[in-house]
Nucleic acid binder design. Structure first.
Length: 419
RNA sequence: GUGAGUGUAGCUCAGUAUGGUUAGAGCAUCAGAUUGUGGCUCUGAGGGUCAUGGGUUCGAGUCCCAUCACUCACCCCA
């Protein structure tokens, strides 16, 4: 038997209502903030991601699905969306059409990691990017949108964590200080952290190893070395979040794994999923556009993992999905009327009234059972004496009442579903 | 990439310690309950190469080995 690739999942009809519901809330919220949807190809030239996300990051160095096409070009299935959105922004000169572009997406991403709870190889993210302004209002807006959407899913056990990474210069200053602090202590670090000391020193803060955490407890914090402008920016972001009623926590150790972040970074974590608790993450990237070959343009954005959110919703039992139902089921008393049933069904279907009938020549009882299983609001029973008299039986499945309706008064039935 | 756990019906699981006739249950599916009407109830039916391959044995779902798959955790991230 051929099975789906490791780390990929089919979304079956029984799950679709959940996804549609989630997507509709995302659409509604994003549009309320006047973000416009954008769709980009699932694969891009590999260089886009290695340059955008950073050669040394885990995503680029070991998690990408990269392959050569027949022309010998190295292509990669997108592991995240920001680089692609920025590429499209530059390629189509969106900046020329308006100063500020507010974009959002809902799309599949691909990373070749070992699957576990809340982590798949093909997974779905939604997110937003506001490109073209340094205003802290946009940092806040991005965080508020993410928070509002999660709240709309009924999630309670969530925490917003924010931090500021400052501008590159202040960060370099700080890194030097941190290196100085750690210089004599390297031997006490875990193996991974010793590597990070060379490659990405800030990430040592993320380590869960006890020995690392002990050493990092007294380490200097980035936030104390922020430049004045970044600090001011950070204060504005915090003030706006407070104003919006979004509870948050400052996490000076929140360092994100993508290279392009500057100033604000944030994460929303859930206590209701396994170890992959980050539902959502993002931040400001004022240098990315230029880095990818565009004119210097600031930006800020976030991405959220839909499967993780669904997992959290399931564990908190927070999603209230309406049960699926259909409008009409047409029962036939004798098989000879099959063409008439088909015709009648088509009549209502073309009016947008969701209708179904039996294709398997099953008994009346079986047809009624089917109607009930489908949650049909009304059932038409066609055949027998009534049919001889030019009538059909219309049964209301909610209260069980039924009435006879003349076959040339289908308006009457259609009106049951009006409005 | 590293570690641990689990693979028995469409789904959730018994059965494996002490190997022994035709491998069970619940849910789901289908059919029926005097034949023209759903939900509840009752009755019945279908559905399993017990993950795969090898080994031990008179005999393996059960013991041993290998492989594969899945799950969780590390790592990293959404």
């Amino acid at each position: 038997m051929i099975k789906a690739i490791t780390g990929t999942k089919d979304i079956l009809p029984s799950d679709i209502s959940k996804w549609k519901f989630v997507e509709s809330i995302i659409d509604k919220t994003m549009q309320g903030f006047n973000y416009k949807e954008v769709r980009t190809p699932v694969f891009e030239e590999t260089a886009l991601f290695s340059r955008g996300i950073g050669e040394a990051t885990d995503i680029v160095s070991k998690e990408m699905y990269t392959f050569l096409d027949k022309g010998g070009t190295s292509l990669t299935l997108r592991p995240e969306m920001t680089a692609s959105v920025v590429r499209a922004f530059i390629e189509h000169s969106l900046a020329a059409k308006q100063n500020l572009n507010k974009l959002y997406y809902i799309a599949p991403m691909f990373r070749q990691e070992r699957p576990q709870a809340g982590r798949l190889r093909q997974f779905h993210q939604f997110g937003a990017e506001a490109i073209g302004s340094t205003s802290p209002a946009l940092d806040s807006e991005i965080i508020i949108m993410a928070y509002d959407i999660l709240k709309s899913f009924g999630l309670k056990n969530i925490l917003v964590k924010i931090n500021s990474l400052g501008v590159p210069e202040s960060r370099e200053n700080y890194k030097a200080k941190l290196r100085e602090y750690l210089q004599g202590k390297v031997a006490g670090l875990s193996e991974d952290s010793r590597k990070r000391f060379e490659t990405n020193i800030l990430r040592i803060f993320d380590s869960k190893e006890e020995c690392d955490q002990k050493i990092m407890q007294d380490a200097p914090l980035l936030i104390d070395y922020l430049d004045e402008e970044s600090l001011k920016h950070f204060e504005s972001v915090k003030a706006l979040l407070k104003q919006a009623g979004v509870p948050f926590e400052i996490d000076p150790k929140l360092v994100r794994g993508l290279d392009y972040y500057t100033k604000t970074t944030f994460e929303i974590v859930s206590g209701s999923v396994g170890s992959q608790s980050a539902l959502c993450g993002g931040g400001r990237y004022d240098l990315l556009v230029e880095q990818l070959g565009g004119k210097p343009t600031p930006g800020v954005g976030f991405a959220a993992g839909i499967e993780r959110i669904l997992l959290a919703c399931e564990n908190e039992n927070s999603l209230n999905i309406p049960v699926e139902s259909i409008d009409l089921y047409i029962v036939r008393l004798d098989n000879g009327l099959q063409p008439n049933v088909f015709d009648l069904g088509l009549h209502f279907r073309r009016k947008g009234i969701t209708s179904e009938f039996d294709y398997l020549e099953r008994s009346v009882k079986a047809q009624m059972r089917e109607a009930n299983k489908l949650n049909a609001r009304y059932v038409i029973i066609l055949g027998g004496e009534e049919y001889q008299k030019g009538e059909l039986v219309l049964k209301n499945m909610l209260d069980g009442t039924q009435e006879n309706v003349s076959l040339d008064n289908m308006e009457y039935i259609a009106n049951k579903f009006a409005g």
